[in-house]
Computed example of a mutant assay.
Amino acid sequence: MYSNGVPADSITNVTWVKATASDGIGGNCVEIARLEEGHVALRNSRDTSGPALVYNSGEWKAFLAGAKSGEFDGMTV
Rank of each mutant, 00 (worst) to 15 (best):
1 M>Q: 11
2 Y>P: 11
2 Y>S: 05
3 S>G: 10
4 N>Y: 03
4 N>M: 04
4 N>V: 07
4 N>I: 04
5 G>E: 05
6 V>P: 03
7 P>G: 03
7 P>T: 04
7 P>H: 05
8 A>M: 03
8 A>T: 00
8 A>Q: 01
8 A>I: 00
9 D>E: 11
10 S>R: 13
10 S>E: 13
11 I>T: 03
11 I>Q: 01
11 I>Y: 00
12 T>R: 14
12 T>Y: 07
13 N>D: 10
13 N>K: 12
13 N>S: 06
15 T>P: 00
15 T>I: 00
16 W>I: 03
16 W>C: 03
16 W>E: 02
17 V>L: 07
18 K>P: 00
18 K>T: 09
19 A>K: 02
20 T>D: 10
21 A>L: 13
23 D>H: 06
24 G>R: 14
25 I>V: 12
25 I>P: 00
25 I>G: 05
26 G>S: 12
26 G>L: 14
26 G>P: 04
27 G>L: 11
28 N>D: 12
29 C>D: 07
29 C>Y: 10
30 V>R: 11
32 I>C: 03
33 A>W: 08
33 A>T: 09
33 A>Y: 06
34 R>M: 03
34 R>D: 06
35 L>N: 13
35 L>I: 10
35 L>P: 08
36 E>K: 13
36 E>R: 12
36 E>W: 12
37 E>F: 10
37 E>D: 14
37 E>K: 15
38 G>T: 12
39 H>C: 14
39 H>V: 07
39 H>Q: 15
40 V>M: 08
40 V>D: 00
41 A>C: 06
42 L>G: 06
42 L>D: 06
43 R>H: 03
43 R>W: 02
43 R>G: 05
43 R>A: 01
44 N>I: 07
45 S>T: 13
46 R>D: 09
47 D>S: 14
47 D>L: 14
48 T>W: 08
48 T>H: 13
49 S>M: 12
49 S>T: 15
49 S>C: 08
50 G>H: 03
50 G>K: 08
52 A>D: 09
52 A>I: 08
53 L>I: 14
53 L>G: 04
53 L>T: 14
53 L>A: 08
54 V>P: 05
55 Y>I: 00
55 Y>D: 00
55 Y>M: 08
55 Y>E: 02
56 N>W: 07
56 N>A: 06
57 S>L: 09
58 G>E: 15
58 G>I: 12
59 E>Y: 08
59 E>S: 06
60 W>A: 10
60 W>Y: 15
60 W>D: 04
61 K>R: 15
61 K>M: 09
61 K>P: 00
61 K>E: 14
62 A>R: 14
62 A>S: 14
64 L>A: 05
64 L>M: 07
64 L>T: 04
65 A>K: 15
65 A>Y: 08
65 A>W: 10
66 G>C: 02
66 G>N: 02
66 G>E: 02
66 G>Y: 04
67 A>T: 14
67 A>F: 15
68 K>W: 03
68 K>D: 01
69 S>T: 04
69 S>I: 05
70 G>A: 07
70 G>H: 11
71 E>P: 01
71 E>K: 15
72 F>D: 02
72 F>I: 01
73 D>A: 12
74 G>W: 12
75 M>C: 10
75 M>Q: 11
76 T>Q: 12
77 V>K: 10
